[in-house]
């Protein structure tokens, strides 16, 4: 009888997770899919920077305050701004990294082999999610640094301390936002047997929440609080608030709102401002801490969306039969 292995019995609990995480990460980074989405985002970033520079420096600009930050949110007539692009295409990155996390593992017969190893079952999901989140962090950081660097070279602007802080906050927000979509994709990868089904489900939700949610929101708001006739005037505030609330179900809207607030210090409030509240206000931009305070709920909601999505995937996965 051969000597018993000392290594296996003294294996630490975390080794399985670490090994899986390393493998998932290298899988992502070596995959064509990752290269493709990264290249797409890089091209889009370059284009939006070009658009912003032409708009801001081509014509007359009314103010030079926070000019560097304005590069992020300014588009041109033909191209969207960097923030808009990230809001719209970021989800695609999240979905790409997650939609086949578990179902491919199942269909190629490696899930059961994994499950037969001395690791906790949740380590499989944790590793996949963490690896995806890491890649998202890398993508967002790389795009952000690229954008800043290229902007500095092109315009000669040097961001100030507050601007740097705001950019970092914006990038963090973007990473969390994309992670929401990663969590959604992981849920579908657990629920759907086929990767294609999961991808389609994710993409349809993405398109719905990004493009059609605003229509649905105004439809609901108009149905509940009609704006026509005499009562329309009375309903105006309620109508707007309901529309806003429904819109905020979509992480796309949440992110857009938060990103605008962070990147544009002159945004002082999100929501309805009455004349009485606005009267007497000093017309100046908000300090960073105040802007952050304004979007804090958005960030918390998105983080909890990530957690809720992950928890749902987790519960579903733990209850599922492992066999193919």
């Amino acid at each position: 009888m051969p000597r018993r292995c000392a290594g296996a019995s003294s294996a630490r609990e975390g080794t399985g997770l670490a090994a899986l995480y390393r493998k998932e990460l290298s899988d992502h980074l070596n995959s064509k899919r990752f290269l493709l989405i990264f290249a797409l985002l890089l091209v889009v970033t370059t284009a939006s920077l070009g658009g912003a520079v032409t708009t801001l420096f081509g014509g007359s600009t009314e103010s030079t305050e926070f000019l560097f930050l304005r590069l992020f949110t300014t588009g041109s007539s033909s191209i969207y701004s960097f923030a808009t692009f990230l809001a719209f295409l970021g989800p695609l990155a999240g979905i790409t990294l997650g939609f086949d996390a578990v179902n491919t593992e199942r269909s190629q017969g490696t899930l059961i082999r994994l499950a037969a190893q001395p690791i906790y079952r949740d380590a499989i999901l944790n590793a996949k999610f963490l690896a995806g989140a890491t890649v998202i962090g890398l993508i967002v950081a790389a795009l952000g640094l690229y954008f800043c660097g290229a902007a500095m070279l092109l315009t000669g602007l040097v961001p100030g301390g507050e601007e740097i802080l705001r950019v970092i906050a914006f990038l963090l927000l973007s990473a969390v936002y994309i992670c929401v979509w990663l969590a959604l994709a992981v849920i579908f990868s657990v629920v759907c047997r086929h990767a294609a089904t999961a991808a389609l489900a994710c993409i349809s939700i993405w398109l719905f929440l990004s493009l059609f949610m605003s229509l649905v929101a105004s439809g609901i708001a108009n149905a509940v609080y009609p704006l026509s006739g005499m009562e329309g005037i009375l309903n105006m505030v309620d109508n707007y608030e309901l529309e806003l609330a429904v819109n905020r179900i979509s992480p796309y809207y949440l992110y857009s709102e938060a990103a605008t607030t962070i990147l544009n210090p002159s945004v002082r409030s999100i929501g309805v401002v009455t004349m009485s509240a606005a009267s007497g206000a000093v017309a100046s931009s908000l300090p960073f801490a105040q802007s952050l305070l304004l979007v804090w709920p958005h960030l918390v909601v998105m983080a909890s969306l990530v957690l809720a999505g992950f928890a749902a995937a987790y519960i579903r996965f733990m209850r599922q039969e492992i066999r193919a």
Binding site: R12, G16, A19
Partner: peptide
Amino acid sequence: GFYPDLTGRENLRFSGALNGL
């Protein structure tokens, strides 16, 4: 089933790593 993009040896190595070797 094995990970199709890894070689046979890499697949084995990965199993070893999962076992804490």
